[in-house]
Amino acid sequence: MPQAIPDAIRLDGVSKSFRLDDGKTVTALEGIDLGLREGEFVAVLGPSGCGKSTVLRLIAGLETASTGAVRIEGRAPSELAAAHRLGVAFQDHALLPWLSVAQNIALPYRVAGSKVDHARVDALIELVGLTGFRDARPSQLSGGMRQRASIARALVLDPDVLLLDEPFGALDAVTRRHMNVELQRIWGTRTLTTLLVTHSVDEAIFLADRIIVMTGRPGRILREVTVPFPRPRDPSVLRTPEFHALVDELTLALDPEEAAL
């Protein structure tokens, strides 16, 4: 596929195998080709254990590919992290328990050795709806609030790449929907190449421009779907027949056994 602009993130023929304690090797990913354009929001959708988190960890530079290449703007992922241009929100928020919400969100500044922009920290606290909780510690917050703080922290250095590893996986359905609406709103305020890993079909369709459906053991890309809904997306999109049709289509794609019936 010829393209005028090269992809911001590229995975070419990537496979990843892990050696287990008993000496056996397990292939988590096989033959992954994936490209993200600059400013594109891509969701990786798949059942648990399909290796979708491994895709994210490869792009974050937390794992290295067994074969193939992972490139961000033509360079190794670790270079992006070293330049403090990568934002990641993890499944388990990873907030430091001894810091307040504001201090946690300001942490990337301190780690980068730059001056903390308190105005920006406060603005992000407001953006994620944690005003009034800036001095609270993570243990005093609900699960949803912790995830919002974690997303604010991922955004604070205004990164070029945002990686979201099931950031709402532990939340109940209602909170999760609220968080999706908020994330969509936040994401609309800036250009940000984003990869979201999720097992929720609704979440993927509501948030992403493009959805990569994966199957497990070993993890492969099953199909790619471009989401037709224009932005900004109103939560009412979630109730349209087109939305439901796409949910049904992708749910079937995720469960080939049901599709065969």
């Binding site: 974050a60 530079g61 937390l62 992290a81 070293a82 330049a83 403090h84 990568l86 934002g87 990641v88 993890f90 499944q91 388990d92 928020h93 990873a94 907030l95 430091l96 328990p97 001894w98 942490l107 990337p108 301190r110 780690v111 980068a112 050795g113 990686l163």
Partner: peptide, 28 residues
């Protein structure tokens, strides 16, 4: 704390920053 190691990797933390902002406070 859980996930903190990965967090500091993706934040591009130097060894000194990791010691100061993560490892030392964690040992308090």
């Amino acid at each position: 704390p859980r996930g903190a190691d990965d967090l500091f990797s993706v934040l591009g933390a130097s060894r000194a920053a990791r010691l100061r902002h993560l490892v030392l406070p964690a040992a308090v």
